[in-house]
Amino acid sequence: MFAVQFRRDWLSLMRAKDEAINPLVFLFLAATLFAIAFGGEPQRLTGLAPAIIWVLVLLANLLSLEALFRRDFEDGTLEQLVLLAEPPFAAVLGKVAVQWCLSGVAMTVLAPMVALLLNLPVGVLPALMLGLLLGTPALSLIGAVGAALTVGLRGGGVLLALLLLPLYLPVLVFGVSATLDTMAGVGAAAQFYWLAAISAMALTLAPFATTAALRISVEQS
């Protein structure tokens, strides 16, 4: 079921590429705004760059999560998924995996370019990318719960941010702190373990919560 759903969503994604790319463009645009706003003093940005990048990654992730279930909800595919997929959490996991490829993986790959805009030293890039790779699965998985809860609602976007950002805090803290510690020349193994642990916990619990949330949302339509 995981593979079936993954293939299906991947195909849909490829046919609506522009929609999928927008959150990534947002990431670049917002980073550029920061760089411009700090004007002629790029060295002042260096210390802040990890925080800026991580916060922007969080926000860009929210933007792409909002669309995770919306289309399926509107055309009724979600009803069929809740009714017919066995087990439904495998299908949910498939959908989240596609979303992660587009947000987490894509942002990890793009992170070096964003980092250069913000004057982050090249030596820190591996730590930044590793942190993103380990932390973004948790963002997508926890985010899916929120997206499933808000899918049918008016004003779902702002609500989604309100529900999810407090829950994203640990990932932000450990991600930024890993990059900063690497920059300071201190090892950051502990933070990476934490990020991996949070993602692993989200992987075991979030699909079930998402399935339950989808049921609640589908019942209201």
Binding site: L153, L159, A209, I216, Q220
Partner: peptide
Amino acid sequence: ALRRAIPAREAAGRACALLAVV
């Protein structure tokens, strides 16, 4: 906010329950 956003009372209750547990 979640409770206010969901019009059906029963569904709002369960959605909030799930969010509280998470």
